[in-house]
Amino acid sequence: MTDSPAAPRAPRGGKRERLAAAAADVFHRQGVERTTLGDIAAAAEVPLGNVYYYFKTKDQLVEAALGAHRDRFAAAAAELDRLPDPADRLKGLIEGWVGQRETAARYGCPFGTLAAELDKRDDGLDRSAAAVLQAVIDWTEAQFTALGRADARDLAIELVAAYQGMSVLTNALRDPEVMAGRGRRLTAWIDSLARPVDQN
């Protein structure tokens, strides 16, 4: 959910940032339980000892991965915010989701799969994941509010829920076209909501 072609990946500069970005990607492909610190070190192209320097536990890496997802979404949202029309911003968000359809078909939603896995735990990481998802809903709500919709909150939840649902189906059926088709329908839905109401 947090990736978009409009948003650049986190810079490859600092090792901590590289490890956090690598953790987000590896957790997406393998899940938290199946991922070792060595897997993340290899993906970040840093020595394993560096992982322990920055992160003492895997849970700290999970927190960092959640931060990477939050930063990726913030970067995508900042890019979309440059568009003057809120409907275009929402359609840009959908376009970014659809652009990740091949990845979704193989691994599911980059963030949704992690959030679902963390929900099975009782260590507070589920609440950290919920905060990232809340940021997506809040930004989406702001776009619907800018469209003049009194039901902006409900529409935001509907849009984000639609994305999560199409991600699950795309992944379960291993069919990127599920997401492409649903993305077209969501784009048409945004157009219908943005159309001025006929006063006659």
Rank of each mutant, 00 (worst) to 15 (best):
T145N: 12
D25W: 07
T36P: 04
A194R: 11
G148N: 05
R182S: 08
R153Y: 10
R12V: 12
D138F: 06
G99I: 04
V26A: 00
G165H: 08
G31V: 07
K56Q: 10
Q100L: 14
Y52G: 04
A131I: 11
Q143C: 09
A116S: 11
D85R: 15
R72S: 10
M179S: 15
E33L: 11
A41H: 01
R121Q: 12
A105Y: 06
K58G: 09
T35E: 01
K58Q: 09
V136K: 10
R29N: 01
E33A: 11
G148D: 08
L90A: 09
A152G: 03
R185I: 15
D151I: 07
R153E: 15
V46A: 07
L61Q: 00
S167T: 14
S192F: 12
R18K: 09
R149N: 11
Q134T: 15
L61F: 02
L186D: 04
G165Q: 10
L90G: 12
M166R: 06
W139P: 00
A105H: 08
F55K: 00
R127L: 14
R18W: 03
V32S: 00
L80A: 01
V46M: 07
Y52M: 06
A115R: 09
G31R: 01
A43M: 02
T36H: 02
I40M: 00
A116T: 14
E45A: 15
R149M: 14
A130P: 07
L48A: 08
W139V: 00
A129D: 05
R106W: 05
G96N: 01
G31M: 05
H69D: 10
L169A: 12
A152Q: 04
M1G: 07
R106G: 02
R9N: 08
G49N: 13
D88L: 15
